[in-house]
């Protein structure tokens, strides 16, 4: 299941989305998430869908690749849906079994909630799939740059993030290897009760931590050997500057959010008409 997480994995392709400045993508992702929470009614979700589909199409990332990321969170999704389905009380009862009942309002909330979550994951996956972790951290560093004045170690945070992203796949592979090696020694990670299962993790976690520390140590040494000494006096191989397409993209994103806000406002007035 760990392998299915697409969040944080880069999908190389040549698309307009890939070429956008990471700051634009970060801001747009945030705007999109806000828009999902602003959205009300079918019209709002329709616009959100169109926007998302357009971005996915333009990104040239295969759709199957994106949906793979959903597998990892399917449990959370199910729980949310079920929770909303049974807990939200509406007027029209659609189904009843003992104390369990589903109402029209519950169904609607559940469906919208599921859509909201799915879109949220797809939206952020698109950002990470089309932006190299380095770009992403560069973008974050630059966006959060003003915080340096209040002594927030922005460069360091960005560097930590980028290293974490680089080592996630390596550590996942390592987990798999150690798990197999211990299985070959008769370890059993699957059966038993919760306590037994937790105990069975020790032979996996101890070597994994040791390896992570060893890697951290090696990497720190390698970085120092290549003259890394923090953010001061550092130049950038890929400095960020906005192109005209970035400005356009900003326009589109803000325009989109505005549209969503208007729709949601209109919903307040003509609620019934727009559902």
């Amino acid at each position: 299941m760990l392998r299915d997480i697409t969040l944080g994995q880069y999908y190389p392709a040549k698309s307009i989305i890939h070429q956008l400045d990471p700051r634009v993508k970060l801001v747009t992702t945030i705007l999109y998430i806000i828009s999902l929470f602003v959205a009300k009614g079918i019209a709002g979700y329709a616009v959100a869908t169109v926007f998302l589909v357009m971005v996915v199409k333009m990104s040239k990332v295969p759709f199957r690749y994106i949906t793979k990321g959903l597998k990892a969170v399917i449990m959370i999704l199910m729980i949310t849906v079920i929770f909303n389905l049974f807990m939200v009380n509406g007027e029209v009862e659609l189904w009843r079994f003992g104390f369990l009942r589903i109402t029209d309002k519950g169904l609607r909330t559940a469906v919208f909630m599921a859509i909201r979550l799915i879109y949220l994951i797809i939206g952020s996956s698109i950002m990470t799939l089309t932006t190299t972790p380095n770009d992403l951290t560069d973008g974050l560093e630059k966006l959060l740059g003003p915080l340096k004045k209040v002594r927030v170690p922005v460069h360091e945070i960005a560097m930590i993030m980028s290293i974490a992203l680089r080592f996630i796949p390596i550590l996942l592979e390592e987990t798999d290897k150690i798990m197999k090696a211990q299985t070959a020694r008769g370890a059993d990670f699957e059966s038993g009760n919760l306590i037994q299962k937790a105990k069975a993790m020790v032979p996996l976690l101890v070597p994994l931590f040791i390896s992570a520390f060893r890697r951290a140590n090696d990497l720190a040494m390698a970085m120092e050997a290549r003259c890394y000494h923090g953010g001061d006096g550092r130049t950038k191989m890929k400095p960020l500057h906005y192109e005209s397409r970035d400005k356009m993209a900003y326009g589109v994103s803000w325009g989109y959010l505005l549209l969503m806000a208007v729709l949601s406002f209109a919903q307040g007035f003509y609620g019934v008409m727009l559902l």
């Binding site: 290897k177 070597p207 040791i210």
Partner: peptide, 9 residues
């Protein structure tokens, strides 16, 4: 396995 010392715990 390869590098079996990595499984010691």
């Amino acid at each position: 396995f390869q590098y079996p010392e990595h499984q010691l715990f």
